[in-house]
Computed example of a mutant assay.
Amino acid sequence: MRILIPATSANLGPGFDSLGLSLGLFNEVSITKQSILSISVKGEGENRANVKKNNTFVNIFNDVFLSLTGENENFKFAFDNKIPFSRGLGSSSSVVVGAIAAAYHMAGFRVEKQLVLNRALTYENHPDNITPAVFGGFTASIVVKNEVHTQKAEILDSIKAVVVIPDKPMSTNESRSKLPKKISLKDAVSNLSCSSFLSACFMNKDYDNLKYAAYDRIHEYLRMKTLPELFKVRDVAYENGALMSTLSGSGSSFLNIAYRDSSSKLARTLALKFPNFRILELEFDNNGFKIEPKSKK
């Protein structure tokens, strides 16, 4: 089998731990049953020894496969990774979702997306990244009694993502440790208002008004302080036609949304202004993970 799992962008400014969307950038894993375990890695992480020695995808896959079949089997895993590590683009969520879905498929079970999503909570306890990796599109999610409840909106092809990927990573755990333990009522109301309005904009395909909603008063400023260039990234993006510009997940990547007819210009401008950063112009993904039969060569 072959499975493709999309990158995701979470929080989207005010939607802390609840809002996310799926990007057209994919990790691909091919899996074949064989007599001995084999792991190969191409792309992101190919030069990291621990990615092979203690591969999280393989560990989760084996746990789930054993729970479904009661058997320990050996497989060949071939990874082609496109999603950068520790850049706020859902690399860990893609691993969790992909491993669970692949284990169900290889164990001979029907791969039900809601079941995969709920099981993913065992490994990733916030739904903002795992949900769009499962369903695609824009998602607003809550967790009730260990189950994820989601509202999804498909994203029109009239808009694209322009993602700025700095040359420095950000640790999710480290950045989360810097967040305030208490927030004011004013800040809470601001985030509730903006996240609600932002969700309505995506649901109604009203992209013109995203700029009024993409403001956070809980986490973005504290996280962006560790990489001050990100404030300039946001300013340049809005000055050059971005509909929305927010920290992607916990960073360090920055998500910019623009209409298709202006996205390339925005990407070129950002590349010129920030030559040390990687700029990706991406489609949005409305499908989530996708399982295909492994191609024969």
Rank of each mutant, 00 (worst) to 15 (best):
N47A: 06
L4K: 15
F61P: 08
N209I: 00
A188R: 07
S199F: 03
F109V: 00
I291E: 02
D285I: 06
E73W: 05
A214H: 08
P169Y: 00
K232A: 13
S171M: 03
V236W: 05
I39S: 11
H126Q: 15
E124P: 08
I31K: 07
L68M: 07
S40I: 08
L121C: 10
V64I: 15
S263D: 08
T150H: 01
K205T: 11
R278S: 13
S67M: 01
S141F: 06
N146F: 04
I165W: 02
H126G: 10
S262W: 00
K273I: 02
T246S: 15
E73C: 11
I165G: 04
F26S: 02
L25N: 03
E154Q: 14
L25C: 06
V143N: 09
L185S: 11
A7M: 08
V143M: 00
L115I: 12
P132N: 04
K152P: 01
T246H: 07
Y238P: 06
V163K: 01
H126I: 09
H149V: 15
Y212T: 10
P132F: 00
E73H: 11
D187T: 14
I36Q: 15
S30P: 00
N55L: 09
V164M: 09
N191D: 10
P275A: 03
L282Q: 07
E124Q: 10
P166S: 09
I218H: 07
R217Y: 12
L210W: 00
A237C: 10
F284G: 00
S92F: 05
D285C: 12
S40Q: 12
P293D: 11
V58S: 04
Y123R: 05
P84F: 03
K205D: 11
D128S: 07
E229Y: 00
C201L: 04
V29W: 01
E71Q: 14
L255P: 05
E46D: 12
E124S: 10
Y221Q: 13
N62F: 03
A107V: 00
S177K: 15
Y215T: 14
Y212C: 07
N204G: 07
L210N: 03
A49F: 10
S245A: 13
P84W: 05
A99G: 08
N54G: 05
S252Q: 02
M244T: 07
N81Q: 02
P84D: 03
D167P: 01
A101G: 05
D157S: 13
S177L: 10
R2A: 00
T8H: 09
K53C: 03
S253H: 00
V144A: 07
S252P: 15
A49H: 12
S264F: 10
Y238F: 15
N81F: 02
P293S: 10
G88A: 04
K186R: 13
E44N: 09
E147F: 02
N118A: 08
V143Q: 06
Y259R: 11
L266Q: 07
D80A: 10
L23N: 09
G90H: 06
V143W: 04
F57K: 04
H126F: 06
R268D: 15
T172A: 14
K52G: 01
N47I: 03
S92Q: 07
S252A: 14
E46A: 15
Y212Q: 09
P6G: 11
I183A: 08
A200S: 15
N62Q: 12
G136I: 06
K181D: 14
T56S: 11
R48A: 11
